[in-house]
Simulated assay, not measured.
Amino acid sequence: MSTGQGLFLSFEGIDGSGKSTQARRLAEALRAQGLEVVLTREPGGSPGAEEIRALVLNGDPDRWSAETEILLFTAARRDHLERTIRPALARGAVVICDRFADSTRVYQGISRGDLRATVDSLHALMIGREPDITLLIDMDPEEGLSRALGRAGTDTRFEGFGSDLQKAMRKGFLDLAAAHERFRVIDGKGDIDTVFTRLSAALPEFFKAPA
């Protein structure tokens, strides 16, 4: 925030980890402090990106190859960056994004094929921006899948790959967290309030510990 720009936070985690709920809770808490907060998501977050979201998150699990998914997600991310994220940061807002490039690194780059170099090359060429802070909500893969399959909604294509993908995703996220200082890993076990207490403790920029 010292640069005069906003702050960019992303939430990551396996399906069913509760990251979307925690992202909403954080947005509410920061707005209560008087901050401008833009809560957004990927894929999506802009009109064009939302159209691509409908293509990639619905339908048969084998609808797209991993390579095609990388191109679709990168196109959606570029539109999102241009139309939502950059303008918000330029006016000093806090941007909270439910998933960003790390999801593509894990889902398509690691868990669905050895395509991490492709993901990183496209990201460097077309996106060139990482979050300032990434909050990883860590969750047991079986519990996460059970939650994901039990929730209402139509975005179920990736849940259809089953528990093996969930396990690979969790390992991929934890490996990224170990390699990059911007990550803060939050234990996702417990009720919403318990997890949010852990999340708040991991963000001393916004939440002071009790005296």
Rank of each mutant, 00 (worst) to 15 (best):
S2G: 15
G4A: 15
L7H: 15
L7Y: 14
F8L: 15
F8I: 15
L9F: 15
E12A: 13
E12T: 13
G16K: 14
S17L: 15
S20N: 11
Q22C: 10
A23H: 09
A23L: 06
R24V: 13
A27S: 08
E28H: 11
R31Y: 14
G34V: 10
E36M: 13
T40F: 10
R41M: 11
E42L: 08
G44P: 12
S46Y: 04
S46C: 13
P47N: 10
G48N: 10
A49Y: 08
E51A: 13
R53G: 00
R53F: 01
A54H: 14
L55W: 04
V56E: 08
L57K: 13
D60F: 04
D62V: 10
D62G: 05
D62M: 04
D62K: 11
R63V: 01
A66M: 03
E69K: 00
I70P: 00
L71P: 00
L72T: 00
F73T: 03
R77P: 04
R78I: 02
R78A: 03
E82P: 05
E82L: 05
R86V: 03
R86C: 12
P87R: 06
L89Q: 04
A90H: 07
R91K: 08
A93I: 00
A93W: 05
I96R: 08
I96Y: 06
I96P: 09
C97W: 03
D98N: 02
D98E: 04
R99M: 02
A101Q: 07
S103K: 01
T104F: 01
T104Q: 02
Q108L: 05
Q108D: 03
G109K: 01
R112D: 09
G113T: 07
L115T: 11
L115R: 07
R116T: 14
A117N: 09
S121G: 14
L122Y: 05
L122C: 10
A124C: 15
A124T: 14
A124F: 11
P131W: 09
P131V: 15
P131H: 12
D132G: 14
I133C: 12
L135M: 12
I137Y: 00
M139G: 05
M139D: 11
M139P: 08
D140Q: 09
P141I: 00
P141C: 04
E142F: 06
E143W: 04
E143R: 07
L145P: 03
R147N: 03
A148E: 01
L149F: 02
L149N: 03
L149Q: 04
G153D: 01
T156E: 00
R157N: 02
R157Y: 03
F158L: 04
G160C: 09
F161Y: 09
G162T: 06
S163H: 09
L165D: 02
Q166E: 06
Q166D: 05
K167W: 09
A168N: 08
F173D: 06
L174H: 13
L174I: 05
L174R: 12
D175K: 15
D175R: 15
L176T: 11
L176P: 05
A177Q: 10
A178K: 14
A179Y: 12
H180I: 00
V185T: 06
D191V: 11
D193A: 09
F196M: 06
F196N: 05
T197W: 08
R198H: 06
R198D: 00
R198C: 00
S200C: 07
A202S: 07
L203Y: 04
P204T: 11
E205N: 12
F206V: 11
P210G: 10
A211T: 10
